[in-house]
Each structure stands twice: as C-alpha cells, then as structure tokens.
C-alpha cells in the first residue's frame, strides 16, 4: 500500500454558538497516518488532542461538535459517514483505548463477556462461540490465567491488567488503526513500559497503525515514527520523531523539550527551578509562525 490509511484534512472542532461564531477548540488540524505506522500526537492538557481523536470516532459529546474537515479512510469520509456505517468501523477497523482503565470497563459485566462482545458485534458469532475467542484474546495480551480472568469482574483486576483487557478488546478484530488516548497516563511507570511494549508488539504483528496521544514526550519518543505537536487546538509542527527531538523547529516545541527534566542535569539536582513553558500559540493566528506565540493564560 502506498497511500495513507487515514487522511485528516482541516479538522475543526468547536462548540456552536447561536449568537455568534462557534468557539473553536481544535482548528484546521491536518495530518495523515500511513498503514502500520505509529503516529504520535503530543501536547499539553487542553490542547485538543483527545477531542481530535474522539472526533475521528464520532464520539465527542455535545456540545462539542465537528464543525469542518474531512477524515478520509479507504475513500470514505469518517466525519460525514452515516451512523450505521460508522458503527461497523468502530471497534472493528478503527478501535480505541482510553486513559482511565478503572472506569472504561463496565463494572457489572465479566471481562470475558465484554471482550466476546467484539466478536458478536463484528464477526457475527454467538455468545458461546465468542467466549473461547475472548479467552484467546486475553492470552494474546499476556494476561496470566486467561480462563480465570475471563470470568472475573473489572474490580478484581489491577489497573495494568484492565488496560490489557482494553487492548485485548481493541485488538480483537485486528483493526487497521488503534487510537490510544493517553493509554498509560493512569498507570505507574513499570506497568507503563509493559503496556507500551505490548501495544507496539501487537500492532507490529497485526500491521495495525497507531495514533498515540500523549502529553508525555518520553512515551512519544519511545513509540512513534512521526509526531505532531499540538498547542491550543493548533498543530504546530509535524516531523519525523528523530528529527523533532534532535532539531525542533518551532519555538514552542523547543520550549516543550526544554521543560523535560533530565537526569544528571543541574535542574534535577534541586539547585535550579525546573524549566517552565510559559507560552502558547494564539488560537486565532492565521499560521503557526513563532510570531504568534503569546504568554500562557492570556485570552486568545
């Protein structure tokens, strides 16, 4: 395959306003994801990363609305698709995992039942046929004793295991694209590394592309081939991961990288303040040039 798997053009998300122009949360976001690629979207909280990901799935909740733009997947626009066709893609061709494994699973349904649902929905299996497949899916994400775990309820599992269950569910139908919205933010560091490795290995094996959303530059550097940097709803820089980390072009990106505490540097020895990122981009700027950087916290 040569063309992009998903081609996003001018995605704009906002809150419609009866009295005037809508309040735009994400503006003119454009990037593409190649088949099998791990694409990172990095930015601070509130930069519009999650809203963009949810918009691709058609899952933003009112009043948040997709105002403009296209997301072409196999020649179809995800953003303009009838709901029924979109449901056939969700979980099947494009799946998603979320930040909070503690609440993302139904607390009253057994793990196996929740995974089996994928096969019932998208493979037309009966519940009894889907059950063994769910156990296999658990085994594939390296959950110990998958038979027993399939009978467990979410509250009986640790956060790391629950996120594995989410991954098992998301990968059950071997999707083309996995959207991972801060998949390890709620986990502690050792579990984080395991979960990331699992996502990378599984997706490599299945040829699944990943849209990885994170505020953690370390996670992005470890996982991604290409990276987009978002601030205040705008995409500032889109680069090869290696290039971005060695030679950041946009001053905002430079500031972001400089704010990373480094082991052995003077900043981590406690004698200096950690570096601070005190600027952001003007939401309404016509382009992303450095001249449109404004002090943080000032109304755009």
């Amino acid at each position: 395959m040569s063309g992009p798997l998903l081609d996003i053009r001018g995605l704009t998300i906002g809150i419609p306003n009866r009295a005037g122009p809508p309040l735009e949360i994400v503006r003119d976001l454009s990037f593409d994801i190649m088949p099998g690629e791990v694409f990172g979207l990095v930015g601070e909280s509130g930069s519009g990363k999650s809203a963009s990901a949810l918009a691709l799935m058609g899952l933003n909740r009112r009043p948040l609305t997709t105002l403009r733009g296209q997301a072409l997947y196999g020649g179809q626009d995800l953003l303009a698709m009838p709901r029924r066709s979109m449901r056939k893609l969700r979980g099947n061709r494009i799946s998603m995992i979320f930040q909070e494994p503690m609440t993302a699973l139904n607390p009253l349904a057994r793990i196996g039942r929740q995974i089996a649902e994928m096969f019932v929905l998208h493979r037309g299996l009966s519940w009894s046929e889907a059950r063994p497949r769910a156990v296999e899916a658990l085994a594939a994400v390296q959950v110990p004793n998958p038979e027993d775990r399939a009978r467990a309820y979410p509250h009986q599992l640790s956060g790391g295991l629950r996120q594995r269950v989410m991954i098992a569910m998301a990968m059950a139908c071997r999707p083309d694209l996995l959207i991972a919205d801060e998949p390890t933010t709620a986990l502690d560091v050792t579990v984080q590394a395991e979960v990331l490795r699992l996502i990378r290995e599984l997706c490599e094996r299945e040829g699944t592309a990943v849209l990885l959303i994170s505020h953690d530059l370390g996670v992005i550097a470890q996982m991604c081939q290409r990276v987009g940097v978002m601030a205040n709803g705008r995409l500032l820089e889109l680069r090869d991961a290696r290039a971005l980390f060695t030679d950041p072009r946009h001053p905002y990106t430079r500031g972001l990288l400089a704010a990373l505490p480094r082991l052995g540097s003077r900043a981590t020895e406690g004698r200096h303040r950690l570096a601070d990122l005190d600027m952001t981009i003007d939401r309404n700027a016509p382009d992303f040039a450095a001249t449109h950087l404004i002090p943080r916290g000032e109304p755009a």
Binding site: M57, L59, R87, K88, L89, R90, G91, N92, S95, M96, F98, E100, T103, A104, L105, N106, P107, E117, M118, L121, H122, M166, M169
Partner: peptide
C-alpha cells in the same frame, strides 16, 4: 454519562 458507555460506543454497539 459514565466512561464505560463511551467504551461501548467505541466498540461499535448500536
């Protein structure tokens, strides 16, 4: 309005 409903939507539930 709970999180697991968003998961169900992402799974493709009608």
């Amino acid at each position: 309005s709970s999180d697991h409903i968003r998961t169900a939507m992402a799974k493709g539930d009608s």
